[in-house]
Amino acid sequence: MIIGIPKEIKPQENRVAMTPGGVASLVRAGHEVLVEDGAGAGSGLTNDEYVKAGAKLVTAAQAWGAKMVIKVKEPIAAEYPYLRPDLLLFTYLHLAADEPQTRALLASKCTAVAYETVQLPDGSLPLLTPMSEVAGRMATQVGAHYLEKYQGGRGVLLGGVPGVAPGNVVVLGGGVVGTNAAKMALGLGANVTLLDVSHKRLQYLDDVFGGRLTTITSTEPNIWDAVAKADLVVGGVLIVGAKAPKLVTREMLKVMKEGSVIVDVSVDQGGCVETIKATTHKDPTYVVDGVVHYGVANMPGAVPRTSTFALTNQTLPYAMKLAAKGLDALQDDASLLPGLNVHNGLLTCKAVGEAFNIATVAPADVF
């Protein structure tokens, strides 16, 4: 298989889809790997490292011309012309929040496998997990930063100091993002309240954290009460492949404290806060009703070296299968098959079809 690794061109995106070590593994397996010149620079990975790993340095067009293209982020409009029927694209897509991209992929008749919908039998998402871990941990760090007065926040130190109460952190969702956000907030000494719809998950988290956080069932009245007391709200809600539900409404902002902060990690799936919109690392925040909103859609791009290595650790085994078997790998691996979102003009992710009123077929029915 000829595999292309283009440079990410989404604003302030410094990750790269594969480390030199990952490239070396692909080359040893007999594949030809084309890496765009400078693709790893943002993650501190040099052209020389890729060449030593066996890659060939190429232009963007040449990398995209490969049979299989591995990326980090979804193709943006400038990359749509590279999409074509014989292309196998393996990357994050997040289609439910991006109708233009969905229709561009369908029109191109390419095959697109999304990291975020590859799913193990136990329901876990192995290729979303590493970036969710990064984003969850970053959410608390970012929130603590924007609570500073000169960043627009209310001037609260999350951990407090002796004689002064710590800040209150509310985490919506007890998945990977929420768990990691809570872990960091507790580490800083904050008061942490976590809400989730699953009682079983709340029991687990109560046990794991030894009762150090408050667990509450996620209902509308409970969310109202929680956000009213919050200095920082972290949104970490996920429905696989679908838009995130709007749990924090515009009306709820009226009871929140002036200068409190919302970090909505689920913004790449539309966000779980009604007033959230996607922002960039260059211009990350805005204020609505006195509440600071942080909506950067590629948070792990701020720590690209950590993120690139963490992502490659998880994506490489699946990339090896796709490179070795092509589309047959989807049929041979029950966890990889749900990752298929688009094939030959057909949409194969039901949640995306429901979001945009597009007919879908089951992934297994396209072969």
Rank of each mutant, 00 (worst) to 15 (best):
A323I: 02
S124Q: 08
K229S: 12
V263N: 02
L157M: 15
T214S: 10
G152W: 10
M68C: 04
V161A: 15
Y146N: 05
S218Q: 12
A78E: 15
M320P: 05
G271C: 09
Q62C: 11
N168M: 09
F209P: 06
V352R: 01
T306N: 05
L93D: 02
D86R: 10
H293C: 09
F90G: 03
G21F: 05
T360N: 04
E99I: 06
A297G: 10
V291K: 02
G4Y: 00
L205A: 12
L45I: 15
F309Q: 13
D86M: 10
A228W: 01
V170Y: 12
R28Q: 15
T312K: 03
K183F: 13
V233C: 11
L213F: 02
D98G: 15
V51W: 04
Y286R: 08
G30H: 06
K73T: 13
S132H: 09
L127N: 08
L253P: 00
P221N: 08
T348R: 11
L106N: 01
Y50K: 00
V234E: 00
V176K: 02
G241C: 10
K52G: 06
T215D: 13
L311E: 01
R84A: 11
V33A: 04
V291D: 10
I3E: 07
E13I: 14
D196N: 15
N191Y: 06
Y92P: 12
G236P: 03
D37N: 12
H343E: 06
A302Y: 11
V164K: 02
I3T: 01
T249S: 12
G160A: 13
K282F: 03
I70H: 00
E79V: 10
K71L: 11
S132I: 06
G136P: 09
N344E: 12
D283E: 15
V291W: 00
D289Q: 14
P284S: 13
E99C: 07
P300N: 14
A364E: 14
V72K: 01
Q101C: 14
I239D: 07
P100C: 09
V265L: 15
L330D: 03
L128M: 11
I5G: 00
T219R: 09
V234W: 00
P6K: 14
D332K: 14
S132E: 08
A226K: 01
G174M: 03
T348N: 06
A334E: 15
I276S: 01
L316T: 05
P126M: 07
L105M: 12
V192E: 13
K183I: 08
D283Y: 09
L45F: 05
L202W: 01
G153T: 13
G155L: 09
V23S: 00
N298A: 13
G174P: 00
A97H: 02
V237D: 02
G353T: 07
K109S: 11
L195Q: 03
T348G: 04
A310T: 12
A144V: 07
T59A: 13
L45G: 05
A63R: 00
K254C: 05
Y146F: 15
D283F: 10
H343N: 09
T312L: 05
T19A: 10
T279R: 12
D264M: 14
G4N: 08
V234L: 06
H145E: 07
V240G: 04
V267F: 11
